[in-house]
């Protein structure tokens, strides 16, 4: 597999995994500060959580494939593009409202990650 394709696939699937996780834990409310033991074991019966786990494993595998060929200093800043992907998907699929200030904060964080990677 082309290693750049593996890298982008890893980023996309890793981002999608976060959406699956959020979908899986939403609507399972608990009314104290901390979730109960039953809440945790309930997650094991959620298809969303299993989908999250599987995509997490696939994304990690693809990431390792990509890193075996691509320098980590090049790959890391690209990883921060998944913040934007997750925000777009969360707006589209989970109806999260993403205010302008949050987009701005995202851009600043991405810029910082790029600076750290090139330093």
């Amino acid at each position: 597999m082309n290693s750049m394709a593996a890298l982008w696939a890893s980023i996309a699937i890793g981002g999608l995994a976060q959406i699956l996780l959020k979908r899986g834990v939403s609507g399972r409310t608990y009314f104290s500060k901390l979730p109960s033991f039953a809440w945790w074991t309930g997650l094991l019966r959620s298809g969303w959580l299993w989908a999250w786990g599987i995509s997490f494993v696939i994304a990690t595998g693809l990431w390792l494939v990509a890193l075996s060929r691509i320098e980590i200093s090049y790959a890391f800043p690209l990883l921060s593009s998944s913040y934007v992907l997750v925000a777009v998907l969360s707006k589209w699929l989970l109806n999260e409202s993403v205010p302008a200030s949050r987009w701005l904060a995202m851009v600043v964080i991405c810029a910082g990650v790029i600076l750290i990677a090139v330093a």
Binding site: V108, I114, L115, I116, A117
Partner: peptide, 15 residues
């Protein structure tokens, strides 16, 4: 870079 990330995190927290 660390400083910029931290600024972004603070912005995000207040967003």
């Amino acid at each position: 870079g660390i400083l910029v990330v931290v600024c972004g995190v603070v912005l995000m927290n207040r967003s």
